[in-house]
Design a protein around this nucleic acid. Structure first.
Lengths: 245, 245
DNA sequence: TCCCTATGTAACACTGTGCAACAGAATCAA
DNA sequence: TTGATTCTGTTGCACAGTGTTACATAGGGA
């Protein structure tokens, strides 16, 4: 198992220093950050397993930052705050924080919660770091990722374009989980370079989904597997069996 | 979007009753349990999205149960306890609890944390143990939650919109229990992000009910199943049988 | 009976989605 | 290189899903 990489976001230099040091001593890689721009930089630069986010960041607001991060990332976030009022905690949870810790906190407790969140993320980890399986089967279909072939239940071979293949892979890896256009765009943008929003804004995703439907749905007009979740995105609504090679 | 199914584990009958009722009123399906055997039974019987686990269970110990569950299941667990000492919380997190709530707790906060954990699980979960009741039968009708199809007694297939489906699910989960508009609005807004009152204030619910009636009632003018409870809300006045897949 | 309130619902407006048609980019064959 | 073919994003339009509004109607008490 890899050493966890944490991002410590706090505008109080002393506390930040203390926290990073403490975490380093406890087997983590702790990177300091002071504002949203910092966070984005780190996220772009490399893997971050968890963000420790202070709610009060001078002129920025941790809750808002958390909400924005959630829109595009699924990196776990623990909010840290001096505010213990229920309404504050609820605000934290509402924007998708994974946990909420009130200052001053017992450092051991902090570690325990970090471990809990990391363990959960690992247990359920999604798109990114998952071992590549070779053959996927779903609803009679088979997709061989090695040969990049798709075979229908009747035995016909269907050829998918590169883009369609990537889309199918994204769905196979997230069977039964609704994906937003935003998420799909990110999944399709493997380089991580391009402007992730560009795809999601237009209708490119819709059209692409339509094209995939045309190839793998029995009746593309009434999608059975690749369903629309209005106002959300799309779900691959079948069970997928993945086999090692 | 499915209605979350929670398991409320507590040996105090009164508290258990209060909790399940509160959760039902807030758009969840809440199932009561008193001990580990109960939990195992429910897990084996059908889909459970989250377990609310009291730490003190008479002669059993919630922390140990949690640890055992963690070994084989990845179902999210929120521990509930009267103990607030840091060491106790750490014990909870150490065995893999997703959250830890101290009694007495604000019920709104409880809801917020349940939503947070559910949202997290939904975002990332990929494991396939979403074994759920697949088919509901009522008054000759059948609703297949897997294919999301409704079939009339005569065998005609009826297609419901997403919203209508959610409404039907809410009624199926609360057959014979009158639901207020407020409760229905909450059930339709499982994510809890939107303003829950918005739906209930206007006539949106009424219109939606009308549309569902138009599709599943024999004579929509004289509703047989989906009855109006004047001054209260609506009741689904038929018995519902749920079958495993 | 009248009156007031709750409910039913048609009509409308707004938004999200499906998709055909088009155009530029990429790939391939010769 | 040229021309054909395939891939892929964009655009525009039709339509479906859903909430709102306005008005009709039903219930129930005085």
């Amino acid at each position: 198992m890899n050493i966890p990489r944490l991002l410590v976001v706090d505008d109080d230099a002393e506390l930040r220093q203390m926290l990073t040091q403490f975490l380093q001593q406890n087997g983590c890689i702790a990177l300091p950050a002071t504002n949203e721009a910092d966070i984005q930089k780190h996220l772009a630069a490399g893997r971050i397993d968890l963000i420790l986010l202070d709610v009060m960041l001078g002129d920025e607001n941790g809750v808002e930052i958390c909400a924005r991060l959630r829109e595009e990332q699924s990196v776990p976030i623990i909010m840290v705050s001096a505010l213990s009022a229920d309404s504050d905690r609820m605000a934290g949870y509402a924007v998708g924080a994974d946990d909420y810790i009130v200052k001053p906190f017992n450092t051991e407790l902090l570690l325990a919660r970090i471990r809990a969140v990391l363990a959960r993320a690992r247990r359920t980890s999604s798109l990114a770091h998952r071992r590549q399986k070779a053959i996927y089967q779903f609803a009679g279909w088979a997709y061989d990722s090695k040969r990049n072939e798709v075979v229908s239940p009747e035995g016909y071979q269907v050829s998918l374009s590169q883009r369609e293949t990537m889309l199918l892979q994204a769905f196979l890896a997230n069977a039964r989980i609704p994906l937003t256009r935003q998420e799909i765009a990110v999944a399709l943008d493997v380089t991580g370079e391009g402007d992730k929003t560009s795809d999601a804004e237009g209708r490119a995703i819709d059209v692409l989904v339509g094209r995939l439907r045309a190839k793998i749905e029995n009746d593309p007009k009434k999608p059975d597997m690749l369903r629309t979740e209005r106002g959300v995105g799309y779900v691959f609504a079948v069970d997928v069996v993945a086999e090692d090679d």
